[in-house]
Design a protein around this nucleic acid. Structure first.
Lengths: 205, 205
DNA sequence: TTAGGAATAACCCATTTGGGTTATTTAATA
DNA sequence: TATTAAATAACCCAAATGGGTTATTCCTAA
């Protein structure tokens, strides 16, 4: 028996999800909550196996609700079920600790399969979401940077000082400074930490 | 008709995959390659819709092969098909530009479904892989750091100077220095760029 | 064959940063 | 109530960094 809680403000959706779960052998919907506050308060006592979580909730957001619940119950599986397929919502939800992310157009059968999948150590996602997630890993070629400059930028991202970079690349510290000046000009930054931040954010290395 | 190329050094696997694809209506395996070199040389002329790619190849690795192919053909879909479920291989493959990642235990039907899925804008992954990918987004609480220190660390990650942080938080530059010293001690680093690198690598902010 | 980019190297100077020390106020908690 | 942690602030000094300028060598492409 897999126990499920639902956090969803729309009465109709909440009830039909609950009915779907209870109508399926081996599943039980043990509670439903219309907002994040009551979910955060009560779910730690109810301890379901899986939570189906909406993102657009009144009061505290679904993201914040996930964060607070995961702090209290680290090993719970949260599947986001939402209409939002916006980058920010998706990545914020995953950073907060969501294990799966389904769009509301997901057919009922697929929702039930996802609950099983998440219990089996998977991370069910709608196809668009999976693509967004995978694409986010893709490295961008650092525009304009020469090969050597790219190497130096990697060293910066590794937290190395001018001296350490010089030693590693067998060149003088002055040459390192030269390369770094060129990197700053090309990336339009003015310090190591800005360069590192930009390189990582834009996945240049 | 979806056209597929296979890059796989094991003769038996390569042939059975090719047969599987050609035996399925709507799919055609237009070429197979036993190593990365020949794949990089020939696939740009063959232009399949999808490539099934092994990682453990003789000569240049599957990762490197993906990287070089994606440089030449940006809009091609590469599905990795491998026994390696090691973190490093998975993330390196995705950074190189792989769109899907299946383990070799994947049943034939699921492989064919994955080819369709990738053509429909998805990113097919084995369940374990999806979980690894999703888990990699999870933020870790910065150990020991106080709330203010965490705020300052965020500013560092944004590439801000002491002065900018002081202005933003409405405190003196000296206090910023104080916080940063404490951050360095706790994270065991000795410079801004090391702190930024560590914060991002360990997802502390 | 020559112009230009890439990589190398050096010097000057001001600013920023990193490490050490000390101290006050406030809030939490034992 | 006494203690502790967190946040605030200041000073000293040395080292690292950032910006400007100039120059040489090598290789590639026009």
């Amino acid at each position: 028996m897999i126990t499920v809680s639902i956090v969803e403000d729309d009465d109709e959706i909440r009830q039909s999800l609950s009915m779907l779960i209870n109508a399926t052998d081996g599943f039980e919907c043990i509670s439903t909550h219309p907002d994040g506050e009551s979910a955060v308060k009560k779910i730690p006592n109810e301890l379901p196996d899986v939570i189906l979580m909406d993102i657009g909730l009144p009061g505290i957001s679904g993201i914040e609700t996930i964060k607070r619940l995961k702090e209290k119950i680290t090993d719970i599986d949260v599947i986001v079920l939402t209409i939002h397929e916006n980058d920010k919502f998706v990545f914020d939800a995953l950073c907060a600790g969501a294990t799966g992310y389904l769009l509301k157009e997901t057919p009922p059968l697929r929702i039930m399969e996802s609950i099983i999948e998440v219990r089996n150590g998977g991370s069910p996602m709608s196809t668009q979401i999976a693509r967004m997630v995978v694409t986010s890993f893709k490295l961008n070629p650092a525009p304009d940077l020469t090969q050597r400059e790219t190497e130096v930028l990697s060293c910066l991202v590794d937290g190395m000082s001018y001296k350490m970079i010089a030693d590693k690349l067998f060149i003088s510290e002055e040459t390192v400074r030269r390369h770094i000046k060129n990197i700053y000009r090309k990336l339009e930054v003015h310090s190591k930490s800005e360069a590192v931040a930009k390189a990582i954010r834009e996945k240049l290395v």
